[in-house]
Design a protein around this nucleic acid. Structure first.
Lengths: 218, 218
DNA sequence: ATTATCTTTTTGGCATACCAAAATTAATAA
DNA sequence: TTATTAATTTTGGTATGCCAAAAAGATAAT
């Protein structure tokens, strides 16, 4: 199996099993990688043979220790590159993902560690996702998307994943700046829009906007 | 044909036809890419179909305008990365080639131009090879290896392609520092070793060392 | 000019990574 | 529980990139 193929599968399985214990189903992998389901079945069978995953037919896959190790390594490379592209090379946060998607396959530990060191060994990337360290250790993040927030809970705005002028203006209008404290009042049943209190004013946030706002439970 | 495969062939053909007009034979391509001659024959036939090269059976290949364009682009990416790795990320000149060999396939114009700009848009890389500009224009270099120097001519030492301590000490001992002026006295017939005058002293340079010293006609 | 040698090409074959369509298996709803 | 729908797997097939060994072509040496 080509190394790049292996890496793409493992990264995808890792990302889809967020907590890294959940079993991932084939269809989601096929969607993410834009592959035919038949191709995925084949791929997973091979990854099982290579002992990167445990694959149970008609059930799903989860990473083994060695698969997890490789997946974390790829995730590290990807996030370090994203951060480097954004912070050191002046790319927009909307541009970095696609480039990092290619750069992540260049496997040179010294290179990634050097970039990380220049960046001050960050534990979070520009999107608020945690960056595994060289050993694969990951800072468990309590950052979530506003769209995943629960009613009555208090949160702090930590970042955004969309940096378009229109979106930033939208946020400004509602006082949703970085660091702002918010309280979720209700989530509308019919369209999932979120009603929250920010600086004593009631604000209505669309589901689309809520997807792009990163918050932390406080 | 996979993009990476195309790029590796074109780069190799470009490098082997130095002046970019000479016809390149299959065996040299096979050697450089560590491929079976049969594979090369196949590859060249496909590149001909794609109009990247003109390939005449049992004769050889040369780049077309479009092949040359792509080749120069790859060469640019490779040499910019080498320079960036060496100058900005602190890699040794012996390490940069292998890493650049992978990074060169990441095709993002903005990225390469940004790196070039940080470096001050250099026209030569750490090995003394010229870096094509964004349009593929190349500064014609009059740098040659000392091994290609001619008797009675005057040259200036411009760089080295081997950075081992032992080699640098060898040079120092003979006063062959960067910028030094030299005059080729004779080239020994039986072993091709070079006798030159440097700072009024006669110095004998082995063919192996002469391969690693870059000079410029003055 | 005719071997001998070296290079290139052809032939037949293998592994990988894919897909479409059919068949199977699992999940869900009636 | 049985039908219906959805997910998964099998089957048969394609394109790419590679190789070894045999055949053909070109080059050099005597």
């Amino acid at each position: 199996m080509r190394q790049e193929t292996i890496e793409n599968y493992l990264k995808t399985i890792y990302n889809l099993s967020s907590n890294n214990t959940a079993v991932v189903n084939n269809q989601k992998i096929a969607d993410r990688l834009s592959l035919n389901p038949a191709t995925v079945t084949e791929g997973l069978r091979k990854l099982h043979e290579l002992k990167y995953i445990v694959y149970e037919k008609s059930y799903g896959s989860r990473l083994t220790a060695s698969g997890s190790k490789l997946a974390l390594d790829i995730v590290r490379r990807h996030r370090i590159w994203e951060t480097y592209l954004a912070k050191e090379l002046g790319f927009g946060w909307d541009e970095v993902h696609a480039i990092a998607e290619e750069l992540e396959h260049v496997n040179n530990v010294k290179l990634i560690n050097k970039l990380a060191s220049i960046l001050g060994n960050p534990i979070y990337d520009p999107h608020g996702d945690p960056i595994p360290d060289e050993k694969g250790k990951i800072q468990k993040s309590n950052f979530i998307k506003l769209s995943e927030a629960k009613v009555k809970f208090y949160y702090k705005v930590m970042g955004v994943t969309d940096h378009s002028t229109t979106f930033l203006k939208y946020l400004e209008k509602h006082n949703l700046i970085i660091g702002a404290s918010i309280n979720i009042k209700t989530i509308e049943d019919f369209d999932n829009s979120i009603v929250l209190i920010c600086q004593k004013k009631e604000v209505n946030i669309s589901p689309k906007a809520a997807e792009c706002i990163i918050v932390q439970s406080i």
